[in-house]
């Protein structure tokens, strides 16, 4: 039997996901399925990973991330090929709050890409993992999901939904071999944060964030902040009394 880990990466063109893949293949050869919407972009990543790890098998799937039938089909065909060790759900978009407030179509799109779509993928793969009673699903949320803020609550609340979703799934699979990991990165140096970077914001390195996520997945840790300092910062932010919080311009 093939002893290589079977890993499915949804939103594989995300910089964080790409670096997770590099780390996995650096450790050992794997069977990787990369799921994305942009065929050329994901092919470039697949070619890179094939050079880094010739002993790995890397497949590419392109699809519409809101197509429920396609999501179900992907999960089922992956599950049918054998037990899945890891599913990483990484896609997301840093929506512009002001645009979402004035344009409801943009608001809906942000909610769909950041909340609905990852939840659907998680649900579909949970069904497959449940059948074999093992495997790990990691969803990338965000520190922004810990408390709604005027600067980005459309994005933040989507990530908040993923927190509740992961929590519920963790409850559902308690006592089984299925693990749910929710990763909450802080601002990270990826294309998503290019605008923040231009404003001079300090960003965590994508390699470091990916390392924290890969480690949490290996351990099956239910919630991981990356870098870990955010855990304490967000604890304070979550506990700030309303009369203080509402005066903050964040």
């Amino acid at each position: 039997m093939d002893s290589r880990n079977r890993i499915v990466v949804v939103g594989a063109t995300s910089a964080i996901a790409e670096h997770c893949c590099r780390l996995w293949l650096q450790g050992a050869a794997a069977q990787l399925t990369l799921v994305a919407r942009d065929a050329a972009k994901v092919e470039r990543i697949a070619a890179d990973l094939r050079v880094r790890s010739p002993a790995s098998t890397i497949d590419v799937v392109t699809m519409d991330f809101l197509d429920t039938a396609a999501i179900r089909q992907l999960a089922q065909s992956s599950g049918a090929a054998g037990p899945i060790d890891i599913v990483l759900i990484a896609h997301g978009v840093l929506s512009v709050q002001a645009t979402c407030e004035s344009d409801l179509a943009a608001c809906r799109e942000a909610l769909e890409v950041n909340a609905v779509s990852p939840a659907l993928f998680a649900e579909a793969f949970a069904g497959e993992l449940a059948k074999v009673g093992k495997g790990t699903i990691c969803i990338i949320g965000s520190v922004a999901g810990d408390r709604g803020r005027k600067a980005n609550y459309v994005y933040g609340s989507s990530k908040g939904l993923l927190s509740r979703y992961a929590e519920g799934m963790e409850h559902r699979f308690a006592g089984t071999g299925v693990r749910i990991v929710l990763a909450k990165p802080g601002p990270t140096d990826t294309p998503m944060a290019a605008a923040l970077k231009a404003q001079g914001r300090r960003l965590a390195s994508v390699e470091g964030v990916a390392r924290d996520i890969v480690r949490a997945i290996a351990k099956g840790k239910p919630v991981v902040y990356a870098p870990w300092q955010w855990q304490w910062i967000m604890m304070i932010v979550r506990h700030l009394p309303r009369f203080v919080f509402n005066r903050l311009n964040i």
Binding site: R44, I45, A47, D48, V51, R52, P54, P191
Partner: peptide, 18 residues
């Protein structure tokens, strides 16, 4: 530095594209 992907490597000839 974001253009950091390998494109191909031929183990026989040692040619690397990146």
């Amino acid at each position: 530095t974001g253009l950091d992907r390998f494109i191909g490597f031929d183990q026989q000839t040692g040619r690397l594209t990146c």
